[in-house]
């Protein structure tokens, strides 16, 4: 369905500095599956989401790697072809700041018209209206929303409207960047339900869900990928990523979710001490070394490769799988 190989992208700042916010990222999603991406603020989750679209505009630039969707490699395509045939049709995106994602001076239906016509100018307004009304109603949104301006919608309604607009062209893959983080709990639940609904009813065939709220991820996606400083540090099925994390960073991150669920302790684990490295010139060796409890001299010498395990999991650490589990067990006592 969607395969990404060694994708690297960078921001070029006003001062002409390069920030490699996505560094040799590879991933693969099969039809009917969903993937969660987790990590601290600033680790490059949103940048990865943008980069996966294959359509770059300043300050973000493509450096290397491939994005293959349904057998087509879109990294080599012309920007305008990507815009026309990929964006919204093959891959669609729900922005992190969905509450501000709509033009404040345009009615929802006018925007939907612009979206549809950007890909197929021959569709008539009536057809678009029928299409939009059908979609909104099947997603549980009142059709009146179409005639409103964004300011006239509540936060939760705006968020769900953005989700509906994102799938108007029936994309294969949906990338949702923190679609619920700015909402209250009830609205959050509705958004999650709606996203699941999209998958179950075949509106989208695969989904990437980005969040820093891990409890959410565990309940929603099949697999979880953990990012740190622009790199993937661990990839595993959701259950294993949460209950059996291997990378020390994942371990620190996941700690806060299993504790309340298992009811072992009622205190939340302290956040991982220290701050992520500056991406302008990241450290030579392991990027997590400066904050890692188990750091060894060889960690700082050269970059660490992702280890592929037999069961399809992978993680980026010099320490072996069993040794890590032993270290964690000893720590727990």
């Amino acid at each position: 369905m969607l395969e990404v190989r060694e994708l690297t992208t960078k921001y070029i700042t006003r001062f002409k500095e390069d920030i490699y916010a996505v560094d040799h990222v590879s991933l693969k999603i099969e039809e009917g599956r969903s993937l969660g991406i987790a990590g601290e603020s600033g680790c490059g989750k949103s940048t990865l989401a943008l980069s996966l679209m294959g359509y770059y505009f300043p300050p973000l630039h493509y450096t290397s790697g491939d994005i293959i969707i349904d057998g087509t490699n879109i990294s080599g395509m012309k920007a305008d072809d990507v815009r026309k045939s990929i964006l919204g049709r093959e891959i669609a995106y729900i922005p992190q700041a969905a509450l501000n994602a709509l033009n404040p001076t345009q009615k929802i239906i006018r925007f939907i018209e612009d979206v549809v016509k950007a890909h197929d100018p021959t569709v008539t307004k009536d057809e678009i209206y029928e299409m939009a009304r059908g979609l909104f109603e099947s997603l549980g949104l009142p059709a009146e929303v179409l005639q409103k301006y964004p300011v006239e919608l509540s936060g939760g309604m705006k968020q769900r409207t953005v989700i509906a607009i994102s799938v108007i062209l029936r994309p294969q893959v949906l990338i949702a960047d923190e679609p619920s983080s700015a909402l209250d709990v009830t609205s959050q639940k509705m958004v999650i339900k709606m996203l699941r609904n999209l998958m179950d009813n075949g509106y989208v065939k695969a989904m990437i869900f980005i969040t820093h709220e891990l409890p959410l991820l565990y309940n929603v996606t099949d697999d979880i990928m953990v990012m740190y400083a622009g790199q993937i540090v661990e990839k595993a099925p959701a259950h294993e990523a949460v209950f059996d994390p291997l990378h020390p960073y994942s371990k620190g991150l996941m700690g806060s979710i299993i504790v309340p669920e298992e009811g072992l302790r009622d205190v939340k684990l302290a956040a991982i001490p220290g701050t992520p490295p500056n991406l302008k010139n990241p450290p030579k060796g392991c990027r997590f070394a400066a904050r890692c409890k188990y750091v060894r001299p060889e960690c700082r010498v050269q970059s660490i490769q992702l280890r592929e395990l037999e069961n399809g999991r992978s993680y980026r650490c010099v320490i072996g799988e069993d040794e890590l589990r032993e270290l964690y067990a000893r720590e727990a006592e």
Binding site: P95, N100, D114
Partner: peptide
């Protein structure tokens, strides 16, 4: 730099149209 510009772009709307949105909103 508004979020709607980025979102519109990523839905495949042409730059010319987006400049129209921006011009109108900045004009107000």
């Amino acid at each position: 730099n508004a979020d709607y510009v980025k979102y519109s772009r990523l839905l495949g709307i042409k730059d010319r149209k987006i400049v129209g949105y921006v011009f109108r909103n900045a004009m107000l």
